[in-house]
């Protein structure tokens, strides 16, 4: 059967236990389904289809919850992954400090050119905050990784974070394609970039603010 999409990106959620990785993937809303059958088994991964500048992009997003107690994610999980969300909890200092360890783990196990992004989750819990936004930003600058604070509970910035990561992967791929085939790739790629910024989010992104 013909391929019905332009890109397929495998993404991972990584970080200490309890930072909210599962909530980012699994929408814990107040409705009745969460006490139902699905929540007792848990979600392994989700497939999301997004529109990125006119291209149909499939995201396969994996939760690594349950693996992290080994303080490392096995190579098998990293295999083929093109983007990694590094998640810490702004109310948990230790989870923030461990981001550096996770980055080291990624460097040792994942593909060298994997795109990364840091998420400071639970930013709705202002009273319990232990890690300031500035420290998050500083860490991101240090590693030259994009950073955003999120609240999975309030669906704040979660979807836009995935769009940002996906867009960065796509840009990297197009750059590679262009480098290997300068003449052929030119026509489409430049046009795409021109309207990248003002692109309005659709579907699941519509619930949250832009970066």
């Amino acid at each position: 059967m013909a391929k019905t999409y332009d890109y397929l990106f495998k993404l991972l959620l990584i970080g200490d236990s309890g930072v909210g990785k599962t909530s980012i993937l699994f929408r814990f809303s107040e409705d009745a389904f969460n006490i139902s059958f699905i929540s007792t088994i848990g979600i392994d991964f989700k497939i999301r289809t997004i529109d990125l500048d006119g291209k149909k992009v499939k995201l396969q997003i994996w939760d690594t919850a349950g693996q992290e107690r080994f303080r490392t994610i096995t190579t098998a999980y990293y295999r083929g992954s093109m983007g990694i969300m590094l998640v810490y909890d702004v109310t948990n200092e230790k989870s923030f400090e461990n981001i550096k360890n996770w980055i080291r783990n990624i460097e040792e196990n994942a593909s060298a050119d994997v795109e990364k992004m840091i998420l400071g989750n639970k930013c709705d819990l202002e009273a319990k905050r232990q890690v300031s936004k500035e420290r998050g930003e500083q860490l991101a600058v240090e590693y030259q990784i994009k950073f955003i604070e999120t609240s999975a509970k309030d669906s704040l910035n979660v979807e836009s974070a995935f769009y940002t990561l996906a867009r960065d992967i796509k840009a990297k791929m197009e750059k590679k394609q262009e480098a290997s085939n300068p003449a052929g790739a030119r026509s489409g790629a430049h046009q795409i970039r021109a309207n990248e910024q003002q692109r309005k989010p659709t579907s699941w992104l519509s619930r949250c603010s832009l970066l």
């Binding site: 059967m1 397929l8 848990g42 979600i43 392994d44 991964f45 989700k46 497939i47 579907s203 699941w204």
Partner: peptide
């Protein structure tokens, strides 16, 4: 092919 899906979750 699972990538035929637009949006879907897979449990453990």
């Amino acid at each position: 092919n699972m990538y035929t899906f637009e949006n879907i979750g897979f449990t453990h």
